[in-house]
């Protein structure tokens, strides 16, 4: 029970001595990556993690899982817009559903654009975003709009301009400002 018992844990350089105990349980390991994989802390803040716990192992936590959520009745009955007896939650006609889409915020439009490829709603959100002066970059597959505070400088050949733009990053789900060389044939 004395200090000698700790020698195999302390003298790690000597494999014969150190192998007396399995160090992974006794000494353990640096927990930083395990905590990071759990989301502790997230954005420097302490947040609950168990309600979105994917799996006890990082290796089997390949995807997000849907947490508990509750949709209040008031969200389910907004006539003419989202979902009600008369207007079910579907967007099937470019003509008929354009005015519904005009009521959504930019982020909602981006969500619908990226979430439902090859559908009427992708087309509808494309049209609405364009109305709001967003342009879709064909190569980057991202949306951008002019930074209102800066006037871009057009190139001599008139094929591009360099300026400051606000991009919407769908991975980080946020708008961010970038200086960028914009080729006109790259956007639509």
């Amino acid at each position: 029970f004395g200090l000698k018992a700790l020698v195999p844990l302390v003298r790690q350089g000597d494999p014969e001595v150190a192998s007396k105990y399995d160090h992974s349980m006794a000494l353990g390991a640096d927990l930083s990556s395990m905590l990071h994989s759990l989301g502790i802390p997230r954005d420097s803040k302490r947040q609950a993690v168990l309600a979105t716990f994917q799996s006890p192992w990082a290796e089997t936590s390949r995807s997000e899982v849907e947490p508990t959520f509750y949709i209040p009745a008031s969200f389910l009955g907004i006539d003419e817009v989202l979902q009600s007896e008369s207007t079910p939650p579907c967007f099937d006609s470019v003509q008929r559903d354009q005015q519904r889409v005009a009521l959504f915020q930019d982020e909602t439009l981006f969500y619908l654009f990226y979430k439902h490829p090859g559908t009427v709603i992708q087309e509808l959100t494309y049209l609405e975003l364009r109305k709001r002066n967003w342009r879709y970059h064909k190569t980057l597959k991202a949306w951008l709009t002019k930074d209102p505070t800066m006037e871009p400088v057009v190139s001599p050949d008139g094929l591009s301009e360099r300026g400051s733009y606000v991009f919407f990053d769908p991975q980080r789900w946020e708008k961010c400002q970038r200086d960028f060389l914009l080729f006109y044939n790259a956007i639509m």
Partner: peptide, 10 residues
């Protein structure tokens, strides 16, 4: 339920 019907897009 499908949110939106298929449609040819860019």
């Amino acid at each position: 339920k499908q949110l939106s019907l298929p449609h040819p897009t860019s």
